[in-house]
């Protein structure tokens, strides 16, 4: 009996591009999203790579969804370039505005059920968290709403399609103590979040060939990504207005503070690279620092 094809759903988030240094704030200290350059966040990119892994390894169908304003298109295109996704979903409606993680999870739950021609997803993958909303709750909450088991910080996984289960390794850092790698088996459907360090590895010729083929396809698809884009509003998703947007958000934001730029503790000293006496001093200093450094 042929195994049924694997359906993968990825939820990603458009994020301000902090790396560019062109983050802009409103006068009240909140992020000015309209003026800040947006990209597919690094955490979302890791999730997208995990989907690419499924594509290469299991010839999976991949759908990528995001909730956000229409400019989120670009992040979806970027995600398609990475993963060769077959469907791109944008969940966009004015009434979604002001959503906290729980209300977002509601939209995403509905979105997932629309993915892959309405078949949903055997695995839903999210990033570990987003760079601009440090809570890391959206993933687990969406999993909870979908009633899928949740596995966080996944660094490696494989799927037993016939046995319909996932074998995953997750990375747990017990800060200051030691790191643990936990191996977990769970039934499908499942929700996983990719650890930021997640990097798929492809070790056989056939996988490498498939990587090349998929990336090629992805480039062609992304060139006219609108063809793969499906935009859903609240009605299209069949959302209950009580559970989305502001009304669906129990979180109360008390105050947002602009993080003041800390004064650097480092001091810069200029040294003339041609002056042997000065260089000697640098060497001595390095040696001293190295001998004093605690070995962790």
């Amino acid at each position: 009996m042929p195994v049924r094809p694997l359906n993968v759903g990825v939820i990603v988030k458009l994020e301000p591009d902090f790396s560019e240094g062109n983050v802009s704030y409103n006068p009240d200290g909140t992020l000015n999203r309209a003026e800040t350059k947006n990209i597919l966040g690094p955490h979302s990119a890791a999730a997208t790579l995990a989907a690419f892994y499924c594509k290469v390894k299991y010839d999976a169908k991949v759908a990528i969804g995001t909730m956000g304003p229409p400019i989120a298109n670009q992040a979806l295109r970027q995600a398609q370039l990475i993963s060769n996704a077959d469907e791109l979903h944008l969940y966009s409606d004015r009434i979604f505005a002001g959503a906290d993680t729980l209300a977002t999870a509601e939209v995403l739950r509905l979105g997932v059920s629309r993915m892959n021609k309405g078949l949903g997803a055997d695995i839903v993958i999210s990033g570990h968290r987003a760079s601009d909303g440090e809570t890391g709750q959206t993933g687990p909450q969406t999993a909870w709403k979908l009633s899928y088991p949740f596995i966080g910080n996944v660094i490696d996984f494989h799927i037993d399609q016939e046995g319909r289960s996932i074998y995953a390794k997750r990375f747990i850092s017990l800060y200051g103590f030691y790191d643990v790698i936990e191996e977990i088996q769970a039934p499908l459907p499942v929700f996983i979040s990719a650890d930021p360090s997640y990097k798929p590895s492809f070790n056989t010729i056939s996988e490498r060939l498939s990587v090349a083929r998929n990336l090629n396809e992805a480039r062609n698809k992304a060139d006219n990504f609108e063809k793969y884009l499906q935009v859903y509003n609240s009605e299209g998703l069949g959302a209950d207005p009580r559970y989305v947007g502001l009304p669906g958000s129990p979180t109360i934001v008390y105050k947002v503070e602009k993080i003041p730029k800390a004064k650097a503790k480092r001091r810069v000293e200029f040294v003339d690279g041609n002056d042997t006496v000065q260089l000697d001093m640098v060497a001595k200093k390095l040696l001293q620092l190295m001998t004093e450094a605690p070995i962790k």
Binding site: R208, L209, A212, R213, N216
Partner: peptide
């Protein structure tokens, strides 16, 4: 070369 070779199940790694 790889476009053509892919059709034959091969390619460049």
């Amino acid at each position: 070369a790889s476009d053509m070779s892919e059709k034959m199940g091969g390619g460049i790694i």
